[in-house]
Simulated assay, not measured.
Amino acid sequence: MSAPNKSYDPVEVTALRPEELDRARDDAIAAIAAASGLAELKEARIAHAGDRSPLALANREIGALPPAARAEAGKRIGAARGAVSQALKQRQAELEEERDQRVLVEEAVDVTLPWDRTPRGARHPLTTIQERMADVFVSMGFEVAEGPEVEAEWFNFDALNFKPDHPARTMQDTFFVESEDTGLVLRTHTSPVQVRSLLTRPLPVYVVAPGRTFRTDELDATHSPVFHQLEGLAIDEGLTMADLRGAIDAFVTGMFGAGLAVRMRPSYFPFTEPSAEVDMQCFVCRGASVERGAPPCRTCGSEGWIELGGCGMVNPRVLVAAGVDAERYSGWAFGLGVERTLMFRHGVEDMHDMVEGDVRFALPFGMEI
């Protein structure tokens, strides 16, 4: 093992010359200052402060110096490396601050804008009011019954005492599936659910059947080929028209408020006998618009009454068709228009608003469940 070289002059080593150290330091500081981003600063750190940087290589030459020369050389290199380290630290802080400020601008979220650019839908008011109408009868002990919209002609007509030559059975009033020979129709009313309920449920039967129905009507302000009905049926021993009148009174009170009169006018339906049309007193003017000099009422047309639907005692032939003993049981049925109720209750004047699907029509009614 050789002894230390005591005559080694650090000035003669190029990497340890003061001017070389100053140049390496200045180049490093210049490169650090020129870094425009954290990625460039990382490259400058590797090039000027890494293990293969000029200052790091110069630091390795100190070990070969005589002991007397090492201290001075170490101070010069330490001062240069310290200046580079300080420059790196300062530039790192500056670039991080710039990055954070840029992120705040580029990734800013304007919380005043709607977060959901797709407008929400709304529950259709026909659905809401149909359920509310059914709830009135459910509170009286009725059950909700359902049936198919594509119905057998027997359920839609024959079982309900519609004769084969009844006008409603023609193509002018009924949608037949493919042809009249199929025996399938789009139900023209929810009354077929009456027969299905009598065939499948034990007596007594108290049901309401809300649902969609179809007729070959033109779409205008007050008519639609697709509309909704709420059918009611009560079959028990000893039921009379008085019970029917009481149920209608309870419905009117539940939907339109207390104190409104109800009247029945004689009418005809094949599946009820006797039959009646049901009117309720106008809930806006309460009949006052018919008086001389009174302001007109748009809701009832100044007639004082609003037509609700049809009703009557179930025809014994319908009971027999469903296998019910007509001598022992009696009952009544009614049919109410859901669209009509919505138009009266909320002042809707055009049927187009209900069927065109414009969410602006449904939104004001809210999301009531």
Rank of each mutant, 00 (worst) to 15 (best):
M1S: 10
A3M: 09
N5C: 01
D9Q: 11
V11K: 05
V11A: 13
T14E: 15
A15F: 00
A15G: 09
R17I: 05
E20F: 05
L21I: 12
D22E: 04
R23K: 13
A34M: 09
S36W: 07
L38V: 03
E40L: 11
E40K: 06
E43A: 01
A49P: 12
A58N: 08
A58L: 05
N59H: 01
A64W: 15
R70A: 01
A71N: 11
A71F: 09
E72H: 05
A80C: 05
G82L: 02
Q90A: 13
R99L: 09
D100C: 10
V111T: 12
L113P: 06
R117I: 03
R117E: 08
P125M: 02
P125Q: 01
T128N: 09
I129W: 00
I129C: 03
I129S: 02
E131F: 12
V138D: 03
V138I: 13
M140S: 10
P148S: 11
E149C: 13
F157E: 01
R169A: 11
M171G: 09
D173M: 08
T174G: 01
F175H: 08
R187D: 00
H189Y: 04
H189T: 06
T190I: 07
V193Q: 12
R201C: 11
P202R: 06
L203H: 10
V205E: 07
A209C: 05
F214Q: 02
R215S: 11
D217N: 08
L219W: 07
A221K: 11
H223D: 14
S224W: 15
F227P: 03
F227C: 12
H228Y: 15
Q229V: 14
G232I: 03
A234Y: 00
A234Q: 00
D236G: 03
E237F: 02
E237W: 03
A242Q: 15
A242Y: 03
D243N: 12
R245V: 12
D249L: 15
V252S: 01
F256Q: 11
G257F: 10
M264F: 09
F271N: 01
T272P: 03
T272H: 12
E277W: 10
V278W: 05
C282D: 02
V284W: 00
C285G: 08
G293D: 08
C297A: 03
S302W: 07
W305G: 07
I306F: 04
C311Q: 14
G312K: 09
M313H: 02
N315L: 15
A326S: 08
R328N: 11
S330E: 14
G335Y: 00
E339L: 00
L342T: 05
F344P: 00
D350S: 05
H352Q: 06
H352T: 06
E356P: 14
R360F: 05
M367L: 07
I369K: 08
